[in-house]
Amino acid sequence: MPRRRIDSSLAWMPARVYIQRDKYVYQPKSGGKITLCKISEGKLACIKRYEQVVESMDDRKLFKRVIDLFFASDAFKRLSVRTRKDYEVYRPVIVSAFGKMRPNAIQPHHVRLFMDKLAKSKGTVAKPANATANRHKALMQKICSWAYERGKIKINPCVGVVKLHEQSRSRYITDKEYEAIYDAAVPSCRVAMEISYLCMARISDVVNLKMNNILDEGIYIEQGKTGKKQIKLWSERLRKAVDDAKALPCKPGMFTMFLFNKPDGSRYAVRAIQAQYKKACVLAGVEGVTLHDLKSKAISDFEGTLQEKQDAAGHSNSAMTQKYDRKIKHVRSVK
């Protein structure tokens, strides 16, 4: 319910309508200002114009419509499966923050305010969730870039808004720690660890492996995030990991298409393996590590040049490979 006007003579004015100089101005919640008419035109003209403006401001005029169009576009469909899934998670947050605003009313300072608030709400005062805020901003910028190129907005409000600082992970899992976690893990987690480490693969790509991914040359893996296609050549250790995967318990007469399957033949969920891994870390007494750190360990342990590491990891650029390479370097001292 709108607040009462201090000046009772202005009680007739609709909500969010104000007098500015010689005009009646409407300030919608979506942002901006809309001039209704001059004061000299009278109350009826003001109310009539107000009703026309409110009626015209339906969802088709708001940023939510732009968001919906982007998610229905070919540009969105061309993104990798992993990226589309992530964007679907971020989408409600973007809609909640900007959906009811008029597209051209969104300014860079609104985006900055959104990022700052999101980082604080998803994290703590001491450790804000800057990475989360940056991921949401990346989606917002993607939407606005798409809309700007198609004339749906006049500016991209995300341009010039600097990302929040992210602290890069530097935790390296030593061989001794890996062995301790492996020994404490259940069979399904052991298989996931080995294939993830040996193939430098995300756990999401491991659980999606099917029997037809097993080739004479090695394991065919298409990365869900980047779409990179690779065949990981056989090694003695990798063959054993695949044999262990095939030996995972399955109900009698049950057929499965997945290499890495549950007893009922269905594939394991990523969260299930993450929970198994976390429990194994506790039992092994290893702290501060995540399942994704196995990929970093693999890239760090891989013997070769930076370019060779990049090719093996399937990264699109060397900068990303360098972030994953966490082993402390041994360099010659000055002679």
Score class of each variant (00 low, 15 high):
Lys127Ile: 08
Ile328Pro: 02
Asn212Asp: 15
Leu259Gln: 05
Lys38Asn: 07
Ile214Thr: 05
Arg169Asp: 14
Leu238Trp: 01
Phe98Trp: 04
Asp22Glu: 15
Tyr24His: 12
Ile143Leu: 03
Leu215Met: 13
Met257Trp: 00
Gly123Phe: 11
Lys295Met: 11
Met257His: 08
Arg326Asn: 07
Glu217Tyr: 06
Lys61Ser: 15
Pro249Asn: 15
Val191Gly: 00
Ala272Asp: 06
Ala280Trp: 11
Arg150Glu: 15
Thr305Cys: 09
Asn261Met: 08
Ser40Arg: 08
Cys199Gly: 03
Ile67Leu: 06
Met254Asp: 02
Arg202Tyr: 01
Lys309Gln: 09
Arg3Leu: 10
Glu149Gln: 14
Leu248Asn: 02
Ser145Gly: 14
Leu306Asn: 02
Asn213Leu: 05
Thr124Gly: 13
Arg326Leu: 04
Ala192Met: 06
Tyr87Lys: 12
Asp58Val: 01
Leu198Gln: 07
Lys246Cys: 01
Asn212Lys: 05
Lys335Ser: 10
Lys251Ile: 11
Ile143Asn: 07
Glu236Phe: 00
Glu217Gln: 07
Gly123Val: 12
Leu139Asn: 10
Thr174Pro: 08
Phe70Trp: 14
Lys100Tyr: 03
Tyr172Gly: 04
Pro252Arg: 05
Gly304Ser: 14
Ala319Val: 08
Ile143Lys: 07
Tyr277Gly: 10
Asn156Ile: 06
Ala313Arg: 12
Ser296Asn: 14
Asn130Pro: 07
Phe114Met: 11
Gln52Ala: 14
Arg82Ser: 07
Thr290Glu: 12
Pro128Val: 02
Val159Trp: 00
Ser30Ala: 14
Gln52Ile: 11
Ser188Ala: 12
Asp293Cys: 08
Ser300Leu: 13
Ser235Arg: 02
Asp86Ser: 13
Gly265Gln: 12
Val159Ala: 05
Gln20Thr: 05
Ile231Arg: 01
Ala72Leu: 10
Asp243Asn: 07
Ala97Tyr: 09
Phe258Gly: 12
Ser318Gly: 02
Thr290Tyr: 04
Asp22Met: 02
Met193His: 00
Ala245Ile: 05
Leu118Asn: 05
Asp301Lys: 03
Asp205Arg: 03
Lys232Arg: 06
Leu306Asp: 04
Tyr50Gly: 11
Arg239Met: 00
Ala105Asn: 10
Leu248Gln: 09
Ala272Asn: 13
Leu291Asn: 04
Val54Gln: 08
Lys279Trp: 09
Lys154Ile: 13
Val334Tyr: 14
